[in-house]
């Protein structure tokens, strides 16, 4: 309750472009802070490579759809707003899907249906709705890039931990000695939950420490 009091005293000053970009990386990181877009975060983060590919694909869709939405924002009536956004997003996801297939069939197989599921990643729709539909193209790009990179960063954090502990490798390259006993659980679904929880704990820990200080 008390936290709410300070809510509307947010600085009204125009945030700088770098701020628009940086906020997604850290302060408003979509995964660690906003805790959205969980499905792909957990599902494809069992190796650093998959995580990175997924993150980049998402970031691409985010940027592209933000551009288009921002460009068309004055043309789209309010009532059909959400429907149009979904159409735009689905288009770019389809494009990414084919692009990845054209790059590597194996990678596409690894990511499976989760490429297609970028459509329903809350980050994209929420950025389109909350930011791109209200701001100009330049700002929207920055915002999308920030958020996208924040997503990539988060996915990479997860994927790296899971791959190193679960397989002893990073991007398929052995980083731990041969005798290392792999923690199979890390590449299993349960390990996804635990790793993300561990990262969130780390974030919470620092947040609390900062709050106390």
């Amino acid at each position: 309750m008390s936290a709410g009091i300070t809510k509307h005293t947010e600085p009204k000053a125009d945030p700088s472009s770098t701020d628009e970009f940086i906020k997604g990386l850290w302060r408003e990181n979509p995964v660690f802070v906003q805790v959205v877009g969980m499905c792909p975060t957990l599902a494809v983060s069992n190796s650093a490579q998959n995580a990175l590919a997924m993150g980049l694909a998402t970031a691409f869709v985010l940027v592209m759809s933000n551009i288009l939405v921002s460009a068309l924002r004055n043309f789209i009536p309010k009532e059909v707003r959400i429907a149009s956004f979904i159409l735009v997003i689905a288009t770019f996801v389809t494009i990414v899907d084919y692009a990845i297939q054209a790059i590597s069939v194996d990678l596409h197989k690894n990511l499976g249906a989760f490429i297609a599921l970028i459509v329903v990643n809350c980050i994209i729709l929420s950025r389109a709705e909350a930011f791109a539909s209200k701001n100009g193209i330049g700002k929207s790009i920055l915002d999308a890039m920030g958020m996208g990179l924040g997503f990539v960063f988060a996915l990479f954090c997860l994927g790296a931990v899971r791959e190193i502990l679960g397989n002893g490798t990073l991007f398929g390259i052995a980083v731990l000695p041969e005798s290392f006993e792999k923690w199979i659980i890390m590449i299993l679904p349960a390990g996804g939950f635990f790793t993300l929880a561990a990262w969130l704990l780390l974030f919470n820990f620092f947040k609390l420490k900062k709050a106390k200080a």
Binding site: W183, I184, I185, M186, L188, A190, G191
Partner: peptide, 10 residues
């Protein structure tokens, strides 16, 4: 259960 999932062989 964690050990079972992490180290199934051992």
């Amino acid at each position: 259960a964690f050990l079972q999932a992490a180290f199934p062989v051992a």
